[in-house]
Amino acid sequence: MKLRVYAIAYLIFLYAPIILLPIFAFNDATIIAFPLSGFTTEWFAELTQNRALHAAVQNSLIIAVCTAVFATILGLCAARAGAMSDFPGKKGITGFIMLPLVLPEIIVAVALLVILRQVLGLSLGNWTIIMAHVLICTPFSIAILNGAFGALDPSMEEAALDLGESRWSAFRLVTLPLVMPGIISSMLISFTISLDEFIIAFFLTGSNPTMPVYIWGLLRFPKSLPVIMALGTILVALSVILLTIAEIFRRRGVRRAGGTDTGGFL
């Protein structure tokens, strides 16, 4: 009982900051402080006017979509290999691919900055961020897809082979539909991570900032804070929706492949 109270208090602690977002987003005052002064939708209206923000959002969306697709493709390869026979060195290779999960993001950021700018002399742009985001999203994709492939009976694909399908069509007709929920979940998670990622994007962004980089710029100007609150409200709502869909698909995937569900992401 005491534990339950503690756990609920902990949840409140986790959500405390987020709950403030909509409160101040609709608050009719330029300073972010209590007491509240009144209701307004002015800050949301202002969002629709901001050209620079629109450009940043567009950039971020492009980056996030590309990241989601590429990271999931790499994740599919690794997770499928993970479900096959072991070979000498497989654990080590998988561990290396999962490394970005624990590497401080700043290390990834500076390492890529050095190689791209100083060594190769390339100019930065959306594609440099995409490359970095694919690197850090792949481990998450692998973790999710491992769940989907792990729950899959290996004789499913053999049965399709046995019934006359080629290796590729067996994969396409049997394995792919069965892990599809995992793929969707992986794409949504990668999309969310990329959309939100700041530390690396700040280092690798070119002349066109991504949305978090743009927000970072805004944070200096007290005048723009209510607008950030409005933007944050939208972003949080969006991520919650995306994550809920991702979770529904992940669970459906595990169930479809015949496993029992125990954990969340990771």
């Binding site: 919650v240 994550l243 809920t244």
Partner: peptide, 23 residues
């Protein structure tokens, strides 16, 4: 269990910058 885990992971995925700023 999975709904609890889901609730706990949600804040982790939502706009890091804004979350820090909210503090």
């Amino acid at each position: 269990k999975s709904i609890w885990l889901f609730l706990i992971t949600i804040p982790f995925w939502t706009s890091y910058l804004i979350r820090v700023f909210l503090w």
